[in-house]
Simulated scan of single mutants.
Amino acid sequence: MGTAVSIELAATSPDLPDLISDVCAWLHAVDARFSTYRDDSEVCRLRRGELKPADCSPDLQHVLSACDALWHDTDGYFDAYARGPLDPSGYVKGWSVEVASERLVAAGCANHFINAGGDIRTRGHQADGTPWRIGIRHPSVPDRLSWVLALTDGAVATSGMYERGDHVINPRTGMPSKGLRSVTVVGPTLAMADAYATAALAMGEPALSWLAKLATDGYESAVVTDDGRAFTSAGLPVAPA
């Protein structure tokens, strides 16, 4: 998936190495299936017409269906075809980490923290019983934080232009999105938080009113504009000082 993943389990058990191995195996399998850089991946085979959607794996069929629903829900701003060929990466990373978290819970590890390149899924508490603390990087000053969040069960996804440059396309114009420097979305599932953050960045400043409406579904947000203004929704779980 082109990023590093860190996993913290707030538990003591002889099974912990096996749990970590299971999560890593799942994420490597996702990378092998959905990579847009590996010629033998299922996504690339579908792109070349070697596979029909009906013949794809259940996982890829789920992702295609989810991307289609998100295209409708975001008025076309979440678009897996924004750059032309299919690229579901804006959904796959958050979804794969969400599934990894569900697998850990099913295995009895209810307190954990998974960070996939800044897209984070938390469950339960840290080992000392306190909520997990997440720093949101300042998009213009690398050694500063814009916010620190405190979460127990929740997801945090940030989409920004400060590491990979103009990598998010506005599907309406076909050009790199403008107006927002960084978008963070906090909510109950990482699959949706990740996709919403990507869609909002693609929208530019009109996303501010769209993000405010998402709060009614439990998704809070924090935004920094290109000119340095900062906005947060009322329910953003900012850590106490």
Score class of each variant (00 low, 15 high):
211 L>S: 06
105 V>K: 03
218 G>E: 11
124 G>R: 06
191 A>C: 02
238 V>T: 14
157 A>E: 14
19 L>H: 05
45 R>P: 00
216 T>L: 04
236 L>C: 07
150 A>Q: 11
167 H>D: 05
41 S>A: 12
144 R>Y: 01
31 D>C: 01
184 T>Q: 10
135 G>C: 03
57 S>N: 07
186 V>T: 12
41 S>L: 05
86 L>W: 08
236 L>V: 08
74 T>C: 01
101 S>D: 10
211 L>M: 06
153 D>L: 01
93 K>I: 05
17 P>N: 13
151 L>K: 08
12 T>K: 07
194 D>G: 10
4 A>I: 10
33 R>V: 09
129 G>P: 04
95 W>F: 06
92 V>T: 13
233 S>H: 07
26 W>C: 00
124 G>W: 01
71 W>R: 15
119 D>P: 05
187 G>W: 01
4 A>D: 15
232 T>Y: 01
123 R>L: 04
106 A>C: 05
92 V>I: 08
15 D>T: 04
170 N>C: 14
202 A>Y: 07
239 A>T: 06
60 L>S: 10
236 L>H: 07
182 S>M: 08
21 S>I: 00
99 V>Y: 06
7 I>V: 13
194 D>H: 02
75 D>N: 12
64 L>A: 13
169 I>F: 02
64 L>W: 01
74 T>A: 01
231 F>M: 02
25 A>L: 08
88 P>E: 14
175 M>F: 10
73 D>V: 00
2 G>C: 02
92 V>G: 03
200 A>K: 01
143 D>S: 14
196 Y>F: 12
159 S>Y: 03
179 G>E: 06
112 H>N: 11
78 F>H: 12
3 T>D: 08
216 T>E: 14
167 H>E: 08
165 G>T: 03
84 G>T: 06
224 V>G: 06
155 A>L: 06
31 D>H: 05
64 L>T: 14
162 Y>S: 15
48 R>S: 14
213 K>E: 15
150 A>E: 11
189 T>D: 15
118 G>D: 11
111 N>A: 11
160 G>I: 12
71 W>F: 14
10 A>Q: 08
236 L>K: 11
64 L>Y: 05
41 S>T: 08
234 A>F: 02
11 A>P: 08
201 L>H: 09
199 A>Q: 03
75 D>T: 09
234 A>H: 09
6 S>W: 00
37 Y>V: 12
139 P>L: 13
82 A>D: 11
224 V>W: 00
20 I>S: 07
